[in-house]
Each structure stands twice: as C-alpha cells, then as structure tokens.
Design a protein around this nucleic acid. Structure first.
Lengths: 210, 210
DNA sequence: ACTCGCAAACCGACCAGTTGGTATGTTTTA
DNA sequence: TAAAACATACCAACTGGTCGGTTTGCGAGT
C-alpha cells in the first residue's frame, strides 16, 4: 500500500483533477482549487511549491486512476489478447455515452496549455499518456502473433494511435458540445483495428445514415 | 473582394493566431496581443469589445486560412476524388515534418479552454472545424460511388474522423515535444482510408520497426 | 484645390479585481 | 516537544477593461 497522504494534499489533487478537467489549467485559480478542496491557501503552498506542481501531481494521480480503471475492467478477463484490445476499445466507446466532463482527459487538456511554457508539466502529461498507451502494447503484439497478422506498423504506434483518436474525439465532443461525433470517430477506430486483424466489420450502433 | 479591414484589426487577428497557438488562449494576455501586433490597448478595445471577441475573430480567420490553404493545394487538381482525399491526407501528414508550432490547430487549442466557459468562442471553434471537415464530404461520397465502396459509415463521419485523428496527433506531438508519434498516427489514418477503399496498403516511410 | 466637418481609428494613463505566492503565525500528531 | 499540517492576513504584479483625448481619412461645399 502506498503511504497515506495528508488529507489536504489528497483533496487538492482530487479538486485539481475535477476542476482543471472542466475549466482548463490556466483558467483554474489557486483559490478555485482551495475552495473546491475545502482547504486554505496556506495548506496549498505547504504541500505544493507552485500551482504547476499541483498540476504535475494531478497528472500522476490521473495515471494511477487510469491504470486502476482499465486494469481491472471486466474485458481484461478475456483469454485472447485481441478480445482484450477490442474490449478496451468498446469500453472507451461506451464511456462516450455519458456527460462530456466525465470522459475527457485531464492530461490531454493540460498538455495543450503547458507544452510551450511549462516543460515539467508537459513531461508529466506525456508520461501519463504514454504510460497508459504502452499498457496496450503487449496485448497488441500477442494478438498479432496469435492471429498471424503482420502489416507495416508497430504495436507501439497502434497503441499511441488509439490514444490520439480518443484525444481527438474529446476535442470534437467539446467543440460540438455533443458526444455524437466522438462516438462516430471511436467507431471508425474500432473498424480500423478490426480490419487490421482481418475481422469482419460488424454493424455499429453509433452511426446514422442520411 | 472583402472590404479592407483597418490595419490594427488585421494585425491583432494575426497576432492572436500566432500567439494563442503557442501559448493557449488564457495564457495570452491582452497586453501580449497588443505587443505582438504593435498596437495599443485603446486600439484593441476599439475593434473588439472583449478578448473573447478577438478569439472568435481569430477562429473565423483560421477557417478562411484553411479554406485557402487546402482549397488551392496541388493535389486538388487530381481528377479522381479518391486521389484528392489521399492527396489531402498525404499533405497533412507531410506538414507534420515541420516545427510543432507550425502545424498545430488554433481552434483545437482554443476549444479545450473555452467549451465550458465561453459558449460563443466554443461555437466559433466548432464552426471552423466542421466547415473544414465538411469540405471533404463531397469527395468522399464521390469516391465511394466511383469505386463502388459501401461500408457501414457515412462520408460526414469519416470526414470528421480525419479531423479527430489530426487533432489527436497534435496532442501527442505537444506531449512528446516531438512530431514522430503524430506522423505515425497520420500513417495509421492513411492506412485506414486506403483499406476502406480497398487499396493496397503501401509501405510508409514514417514508422520504424523495432 | 482647399478646407470644413465628422466619424472612425488610435492612443496611453488609469482602475478595480484577481493572480500566484509569502510571512507569520496556531494547531495537530507522532 | 518537535516537526508536520494547516490557517490567515497580506502583497506586488498582472488582469481585462475604461475613459477622455488626439489623429487620420474622406466626402461635401465652395
């Protein structure tokens, strides 16, 4: 077990994950974060030297959250690695049926605001994205072997591609204030992966013709 | 011809496109924009009631810029609409070889910061993304007919999917501070479109095995 | 051609509110 | 009993935005 953190620190990280995901990093003030966490500024700067440091901690917490959420999801019980991959993608697609604020990515939001001005926060966001993406690599490679699929691509690039598509889907959902386009783009991703592995492309429920 | 705008207004819009793309909308102050444009605050608020209104104007200018850039690109001369689509995707992939600040998307950046708090700016970003995506729809539909491709997807959803993948690619590039992952994801997108249209999947130059 | 009138363009000092961060405490806990 | 945790008052810098004023472009009248 990880050593128990002090309540204020935990609460601040939780507040950052929640508020930054809604408003963005720069639009969220230290006072906002303290208010949301029910904590004073003194506590804030006792635990974090700067606001950016809380962002970095939030990115780390986000990574743990993702590992927990996707590492213990039901589809992980599938014996065939390809079923685990397709289960993962279906799971992520189905998340897009909920409210926008509940499926978007904290670090995808933060990295756009920090990449040019806050190298340490940018690096924490990269670590979070890459760490999650790389959890898919072993299954992709195993699925390739098991199903005899070669193709001119690497498992790592496909793993990162899934993350890119999802990040892009979040942007479409935010832009339209509607997750429909995000669901459609997730369906395209699923169709792509099925084609790569020579599976029949099944009728998806998410798209409407007309 | 559009009526000539006043110099300060043009300069401010140009400054917004440049600086916001680098730093993000919230991290860019009105003074930053005035400095970059070589204009005073008085001029700023003469032309734009608020900072958000400049953001909206910048989104509009970005849309015109995209229409100009992609509407007159060489690949548009291809007779087969499928060649135009593949030409577009190759063009966008090749843009990813330059510096990060030169291929990222202004409105994709702004929408993440505005969707929850600035509905009018969010709407302007959506308009810019959708307008550009929809320029692909006619060619996709024509290519489908010409090449006898049916498939369980709409032209509009595929057009939006290309934009989602590119937006996601920008996020990967920013996160890694390196465009390699973005290039790889663009290669996956090209491979997907080729597979949808039953074309042989050619060896791409962007990915490395190992 | 000249100049008058006037609106649009532009300027820069100024403002009140907010920002991230600090200094100096008091309380809790091991 | 000392250190870690937390609280409060405070600050200088900066924020988006305002305001009264000056300059510029330009059509009309002569």
């Amino acid at each position: 077990m990880a050593p128990r953190q002090s309540p204020a620190k935990e609460k601040l990280i939780g507040a950052a994950v929640k508020v930054v995901r809604e408003k963005g990093f720069n639009a969220t003030s230290v006072d906002d974060l303290c208010r949301e966490a029910g904590v004073t500024k003194g506590a804030f700067f006792h635990h974090f030297p700067t606001k950016v440091d809380l962002g970095i901690a939030a990115a780390g917490a986000w990574k743990l959250h993702a590992n927990e959420l996707f590492g213990t999801a039901p589809y992980m019980a599938h014996e065939d690695p390809l079923d685990r991959i397709l289960g993962y993608l279906a799971f992520r697609r189905d998340m897009l049926d909920g409210p926008i604020a509940e499926f978007t990515c904290l670090v995808g939001t933060m990295v756009q605001e920090s990449y040019d001005s806050q190298p340490s926060l940018r690096a924490a966001c990269q670590d979070s994205i890459w760490d999650h993406a790389l959890t898919l690599v072993d299954d992709i490679e195993a699925a390739r072997k098991r199903h005899g699929v070669t193709g001119d691509w690497t498992a790592e690039s496909l793993a990162l591609h899934t993350q890119a598509v999802l990040q892009g889907a979040f942007i479409l959902a935010k832009a339209a204030d509607d997750p429909q386009a995000a669901r459609d783009t997730a369906d395209h991703l699923i169709r792509y992966v099925r084609m790569l592995f020579n599976l029949p492309v099944i009728r998806s429920e998410g798209e409407h013709h007309g």
